[in-house]
Design a protein around this nucleic acid. Structure first.
Lengths: 179, 179
DNA sequence: CTTGAAAAAACACATTA
DNA sequence: TAATGTGTTTTTTCAAG
């Protein structure tokens, strides 16, 4: 097994770090991935071939997982967004429960720490469809209860941003952590 | 004011409905928006110019909101995902609270119905950064408490899907709704 | 909506800095 | 590692039917 195959199995090249220019590229492509390499290069201070090379590397390394069309939920008749908390008896992550990922209405499935086991993000046409999904969940062995948070308004919803906040405000009245 | 300007103000062209072919196009572009119009046309049974015309219309109408690079959170040093529930005194949606959208760590802000007022999806480098964000939230006037659900594992996370489930399983032991 | 031809990119090089 | 320059290929785009 060669190094490349190994890296693919690990699902990512630990490879080269994402540097400042890479972050700028990612920032641009998150906003609009349809621009030409000429324009991308211009925005980050690189020649078109250099920009192209960077993007290819970011895709190879897995930093760019995909380039996707972002759809307006209303255009595809899915105006109702909800977050569903699921409590289970025993270990929640069963194949039966994971089967809900077959429904295109289910956009996210996470296991979480807190007063609940799992968290789903679902987008449906109406409350009727949400009820159908919840009914399906209750039919799943091990599911003891669900709590749904129906979204009234969405004020922000965006993909993963490459930027990070360098300096966080020091929590007031708080002891300094050891590390 | 002409019709077109009016439509733009409404932020969408009510225009032509998204038909079956449009949905197929959206389905393909959600998976991979880098393909050529030739290939897109082939996959949905259209000529390249026809496919192009459809895509242009979907973008004009706002059905396709953007074409974005989907970034691996780990590549940009944001391995920690959390959902934060915020309880507020009075009406939660204040400008001060909305200011958190300036932090690139905050990906979603929703107002919800349920036992909490607002719901945030945040992605940070570590627990320290999450604490910094929470400290910032507590500093916001009106915020009475927060509850955080730290994601242990993500099993599914995908963009809005154009498909919808036609037939939901009829909820067992449930009376038939009037409508 | 299709076919077919043009214009404009993207892409793959080699060379140089 | 990136810039420049060349040529080739592909894609986009605009005709006309």
């Amino acid at each position: 097994m060669d190094a490349e195959t190994d890296d693919i199995q690990r699902n990512k090249h630990p490879a080269r770090e994402v540097d400042a220019i890479d972050r700028k590229i990612l920032g641009v492509l998150v906003e609009d991935a349809t621009i030409s390499y000429a324009e991308l290069g211009e925005r980050v201070g690189l020649s078109p071939p250099a920009a192209h090379e960077r993007v290819k590397r970011l895709k190879r390394s897995g930093a760019i997982r995909a380039t996707s069309a972002i759809i307006d939920p209303r255009a595809v008749k899915k105006p109702l967004l909800a977050f569903v908390h699921i409590d289970t008896r025993g270990w929640g992550k069963t194949p039966e429960l994971m089967a809900v990922s077959k429904f295109p209405e289910v956009e996210e499935i996470h296991t979480v720490a807190g007063d609940t086991c799992m968290l789903l993000k679902v987008r449906t046409e109406d409350t009727r469809a949400l009820e159908g999904l919840l009914a399906r969940l209750y039919d799943t062995p091990g599911v003891t209860s669900t709590r749904s948070y129906v979204v009234l308004s969405t004020y922000l919803e965006r993909p993963v941003q490459p930027e990070t906040t360098a300096e966080w405000p020091a929590p007031k009245h708080m002891a300094t952590p050891v590390y």
